[in-house]
Design a protein around this nucleic acid. Structure first.
Lengths: 205, 205
DNA sequence: TCCTGACTTTTTTAACAAAACTATCAAAAA
DNA sequence: TTTTTGATAGTTTTGTTAAAAAAGTCAGGA
């Protein structure tokens, strides 16, 4: 029984890997179930044996990415001594995550409206996990007496995350697709670090 | 000659007003040239005598709004004694502007991609005017010795404006239309003031 | 120079068929 | 009994066309 499940899990894992590659290179809408099946030399029907439908498959991949991302954050975030390092680590990790999976998220760029609810659920989970981790970092600093008491850390972090999210490139701030282009990610990252620097100073003040 | 032009200008102004009302209530795509002409009891053809086409008409209205908005900012912005008041005034004025013209901008919500280039030009102009006004406010503060020297005020203000722009509502930060709903504007405004508060402190530090 | 009614051109909408893809299922293989 | 597949059913996307609506033009009148 355990062996059978192991086998299943391995196969599920293989499917997730192949799907991830396809989604990463071609995005959601330009990837067909036939292609994924073909990559694995299996029939399309088998995919449906392991996953209920295409969107669930995509979501499973996304959930895996999200879990890995959060694991990375979690493992290091409370090991930092000062607040700035912790936040910088978050910004850097986030940047890396986006760069590495840029095409994967074409789903968001294209389908901007009406995405499956589960997607937003994952986004929400990640967001609140980040929010928890970061506001916790603030609380620890407060307890250590490193910064003066903050009445609502969650609110602060929420604003900061929105602000970071708002960083765009170029003078024409809201132009075009709202989703940053890949070639701008580095510039955006730099601007985020600048914002973070000022924001942290503002918190300490 | 002057009289003739005055007459023309008055009529142009009337057309702009009527168009503004229509665009404000019904948005760009749900407003027809026939309706605007009807409001003014004139023929549609006359509209085309004064404006080359519908989008130019819309743009003219937008340019007027932008000019008024900037005039408001300009007139008061260098009369403030401290930086925080100046920036707060900007945020408040911007908020008011958006609230008062919310439906006017449905053009942006719907047509998200491929807007006429001129629109982005206006957006760009407003953006850089704001950027100038605000970074000037910083420079003045520096000269007065109120805050310590800043090596690149424009960059700072650019980041701040992006950050403010990024403020969204609710935990699920990037959900839905990317354009805030009207009922969320107040909450967003409050969050912006919070961000501004921290940011300014960070600048002073 | 300002204005209009009638006209032309372009865009939007609706209906529908063809193609592409998702999803299902009975049955074969392991 | 679990895993796999070929055949096929169902759905979404794409392409086509015709009608309606709106944008845009123009010759001519005041």
């Amino acid at each position: 029984m355990a062996a059978a499940n192991d086998q299943q899990d391995i196969k599920r894992e293989k499917i997730l890997e192949a799907s991830h590659q396809r989604f990463l290179h071609y995005g959601y809408s330009k990837t067909t179930m036939n292609e994924i099946a073909g990559d694995l030399s299996m029939s399309k029907a088998l995919l449906y044996y392991y996953f209920p439908d295409k969107s669930q498959l995509y979501i499973a991949v996304m959930r895996k990415l999200a879990t890995d991302y959060l694991k990375t954050l979690e493992s290091r975030l409370n090991s930092f001594t000062n607040l700035k390092e912790a936040f910088t680590f978050q910004v850097n990790t986030h940047h890396e995550f986006i760069v590495n999976n840029y095409n994967f998220f074409d789903f968001f760029r294209l389908n901007e409206q009406n995405l499956p609810e589960t997607i937003w659920q994952i986004v929400g989970e990640v967001h609140s996990a980040e929010l928890n981790l970061l506001s916790n970092a603030i609380k620890i600093e407060v307890e250590k007496g490193a910064i003066k008491p903050v009445n609502n850390p969650e609110e602060i972090v929420d604003v900061l995350m929105d602000a970071l999210h708002g960083i765009r490139v170029g003078a024409i701030s809201q132009k075009k697709t709202n989703f940053p282009r890949k070639e701008h990610l580095e510039e955006i990252h730099t601007k985020k670090l600048l914002l973070l620097d000022i924001f942290i100073k503002g918190l300490m003040a």
